[in-house]
Design a protein around this nucleic acid. Structure first.
Lengths: 126, 126
DNA sequence: TTTAATGTATTATATAAGTAATACAATAAA
DNA sequence: TTTATTGTATTACTTATATAATACATTAAA
């Protein structure tokens, strides 16, 4: 799992854990039924207290993303159909937020298209 | 000033105030030398405690965005040249963040271009 | 059955964030 | 000079965030 915590971020650590796992599930890196890393393992990996990770896991379960079971771990509970819908919704929401900010900064949709076109032509994308 | 606080946001209120004022300055809604609303007025408008707004103003001054003066208020201190550079930097940073998330969600640059093209053709944009 | 790993729960402590009520000093205008 | 408004500062309190050290019950495997 590609997951790091930015201590300088204004987002609380447990919120960062929630977002990162959601992203991992929606991108297909974690599938329905997959086992999440144990609370203790992830805490050690991220250098967080186990309680902080547990808080994130509890929130994920409350949102219906996973199911926690003492002794056997936490498993993703997002069927492929629901995942695809959530993936699409999150993308459109991120796009909407970005466009709002970009437009209020004075950039037009055409400006943005030009930037993306430029990125496509960068060596790093060939 | 177009400014609202989302109480449900994981971002602390004073951070939201900072971001909103920065955006207002970078978009040109507030110019170098312009007077910010008084701490008390803005607190009343946003239904926040004056101390919370004062904290945001203090941070903005520390970042060199504004200058606070007892008795006469807080004034924007961002010359046009610096503003334009910051505006460009913020846009590119927001674009980078969005593209990162979108790509990790499995969307290609072409997908994004298609979405933007679709938005351009929406009635709300004609 | 034993053992180890799991999520869960509890208690304590520390710091950050936010609210609240005041008071103070500087400024600008009447 | 007086008055009102400004940013600033202080104190107190509450809640959220995070760490720390344990303990407990459940599960799965040895």
């Amino acid at each position: 799992m590609n997951l790091t915590i930015d201590a300088k971020s204004p987002l609380p650590a447990y919120q960062q854990v929630i977002q990162a796992i959601k992203l991992e599930v929606l991108s297909g890196g974690l599938c329905d039924g997959d086992l999440l890393p144990s609370i203790r393992d992830l805490a050690k990996l991220l250098k967080l207290n186990p309680n902080t990770v547990a808080k994130a896991y509890y929130a994920l379960e409350a949102e219906g993303f996973s199911e926690n079971r003492s002794g056997s771990g936490s498993r993703v509970r997002v069927p492929a159909g629901r995942r695809d819908a959530l993936r699409q919704a999150m993308f459109e929401n991120e796009l909407k937020n970005f466009l709002e900010k970009a437009v209020s900064l004075g950039f037009s949709l055409e400006d943005i298209q030009q930037f993306i076109e430029r990125i496509k032509n960068e060596p790093s994308h060939r």
